[in-house]
C-alpha cells in the first residue's frame, strides 16, 4: 500500500510511570501502523498498557520515548478528527441526550446552532435513539448510554475513532447488538477505528487486524489478520476458531498465567 494511506504510525513507543518511588514500565518498544479506513483491535490482558497507548494516540498523554504520528503530525494535543469513546459513556448528566451529542460539535467552527442540532439528530437516528433526544442521561440504560457516546463521537465527522473498551461494562446481549451496529457504521462511513479490548471474541468479531500485547510491560506479541467476511457474529464457528488461536498466542508467548480469556 502507498505511504500516504498510513493514518496512524507508532514507532518505538515506550512508557513508564513512577508511582510511590516505584518505576513501572508500562509499554516497551511498540511499533505499528494503521491504514486509512482500517479497523484494528489492540488486545491484551488488563494492565498491559493498552489504554495508555490509546490515550497517547488520542493526545491525552504525552509519549516519552518514540513517537506516534497521525496524518503526518505528532499527537501532543487531542484533536477533533480523532474522537474517543471510553469504558464509561462519559456523558454529561447536566445536558439531555441531544445536547450531549451537540457538545461534540460545540467547538467546531462554521456551524450555526440549528445545523449542530440537525447533525446531532442525524447521528442519534443512526444509532437508533430518535425518541430519546429529550431524555436525561440517568434515564438511559448502559447500552443506550454507549450509543449516545458513539453518536457524540461520530457527530464531528472524525477520520479516526478511538475506542477504549467501550463494551466491557455491558451485558452480552447488548454487546452483540452494538457489535452489529459498529460493523454497520464502519461499513457505511469508512472511519479508521482503533479498538482497545481485553475481550478476544470482541476483537475477532470487529477488527480486520488484531495486535496482541503481552502482559506488562506491553510488547507486541503478534499482528494477527482476521480474514473473515463482514458482517460477523459472535457465535460463528469461524470466529470461535480464530478466538481460540488468539488465546493460544496470549498464553504461549506472553506467559499470561492469571489471564482469564473471555471465550
Amino acid at each position: 500500500m502507498a505511504e500516504t494511506d498510513v493514518k496512524i504510525c507508532a514507532s518505538h513507543v515506550s512508557k513508564a510511570f513512577t508511582r510511590d518511588h516505584c518505576f513501572i514500565k508500562v509499554l516497551e518498544d511498540i511499533s505499528f501502523s494503521v491504514q486509512a479506513g482500517e479497523f484494528v483491535a489492540i488486545l491484551g490482558p488488563s494492565g498491559c498498557g493498552k489504554s495508555t497507548l490509546l490515550n497517547m494516540v488520542a493526545g491525552l498523554e504525552p509519549c516519552e520515548k518514540g513517537n506516534i504520528i497521525v496524518d503526518e503530525y505528532h499527537t501532543d494535543q487531542p484533536e477533533r478528527h480523532r474522537m474517543m469513546m471510553f469504558q464509561e459513556a462519559a456523558l454529561f448528566p447536566w445536558y439531555n441526550v441531544l445536547s450531549n451529542v451537540v457538545y461534540g460539535l460545540r467547538f467546531k467552527k462554521g456551524l450555526t446552532n440549528t445545523e449542530r442540532k440537525t447533525i446531532a439528530s442525524y447521528y442519534l437516528h443512526m444509532v437508533g435513539l430518535d425518541y430519546f433526544e429529550r431524555a436525561y442521561v440517568h434515564e438511559l440504560s448502559g447500552g443506550m448510554k454507549q450509543r449516545v457516546a458513539l453518536a457524540r463521537a461520530l457527530a464531528p465527522n472524525p477520520q479516526i475513532l478511538l475506542m477504549d473498551e467501550p463494551f466491557s461494562a455491558l451485558d452480552a446481549l447488548t454487546c452483540e447488538q452494538l457489535y452489529k451496529d459498529v460493523q454497520k457504521i464502519w461499513n457505511m462511513q469508512h472511519k479508521t477505528i482503533l479498538l482497545v479490548t481485553h475481550n478476544v471474541r470482541e476483537a475477532v468479531v470487529l477488527a480486520q487486524r488484531v495486535i496482541v500485547l503481552s502482559q506488562r510491560p506491553g510488547k507486541i506479541l503478534k499482528d494477527f489478520p482476521i480474514q473473515l467476511p463482514y458482517p460477523r457474529y459472535v457465535h460463528d464457528v469461524s470466529v470461535s476458531a480464530l478466538a481460540n488461536e488468539l488465546v493460544n498466542v496470549l498464553h504461549t508467548k506472553g506467559g499470561v498465567d492469571d489471564y482469564i480469556a473471555c471465550v
Binding site: 488520542a58 491525552l60 462519559a90 461534540g104 460545540r106 467547538f107 464531528p156
Partner: peptide, 27 residues
C-alpha cells in the same frame, strides 16, 4: 469530578475557560 469528563471534553475540542465553564463547573 470524574477525570473521564475532562478527557472526553478535551477530545471534543474544549480548552481552557470553555472547559471550565461547560464541563468542570457543572460537573
Amino acid at each position: 469530578i470524574p477525570s473521564v469528563y475532562v478527557k472526553a471534553a478535551r477530545t471534543m475540542g474544549a480548552r481552557g475557560v470553555n472547559l471550565w465553564l461547560t464541563v468542570i463547573f457543572p460537573a
